[in-house]
Amino acid sequence: MDVTDEEQLMLDSGTRPTIIVDDVHVRYRTYASGKPSEGGKSLASRSTRGVREVHALKGVSFTAFQGESIGVIGHNGSGKSTLLRTVAGLTPASSGVVYAEDQPALLGVNAALLNELSGDKNVRLGGLALGFSEAEMREKYGSIVEFAGLEEFIQYPMRTYSSGMSARLRFAIAASKNHSILLIDEALSVGDKKFRKKSEQRIKEMQKAAGTVMLVSHSISTILEACSRVLWIDKGNLRMNGDPKEVCEAYLGHANQ
């Protein structure tokens, strides 16, 4: 495994690693008629059978430690979200291994529930899938709906929601539980200003409670403010891993070329 000097220093000082990602590759197979999966058209190659293979992550390795918050930056379709889903165990690695202290929880705007059901039913189902009991859900239900700010719309099917509304509801459901490894995919940019403030507050609370936080964001200022280390993912490769200021500057310099 390639261990950066910084990571080696942490190991030598006896800091406890919470996530170890070892040479992870992710390949998707999608069918030409189906919807293309995340990872982007630019990475797609067509095979003769009408099955496209997308090589979304090409050997990513890093180690995260207790108390760290790690930012992940990169262009659209570079593999950031795939990396987070792989660390969460939701997208299996084609090769390579992810080790973690506990089952990581992913908070994402792309997290989908069941569109044909009402918001109210999605709240209950999401809670049950997260492992809450029915009694716990009855207790939490009100605060989830209030957090999402959807009291008037909660009886309508989720397919009638605007993208902002459904993102708020999904965030509120996922954030109803405290997690020890927390992966946040663009969730900070969800919704309007008022909701963003509320969700930033909630994420800070969870950051304190959680051992390790990973954060994907397109907002460099958010990354610089919240993170102690930054990974730059470029076309499925880990291009840089280190000090937030250094990595962000290199990334911005590259983006402006």
């Binding site: 299996p92 690695a93 080790y99």
Partner: peptide, 15 residues
């Protein structure tokens, strides 16, 4: 080695 490290700190394989 990652697996040894994971074992030492009691990390489990994800997924």
């Amino acid at each position: 080695s990652p697996s040894a490290l994971a074992e030492r700190y009691g990390l489990i394989r994800v997924g």
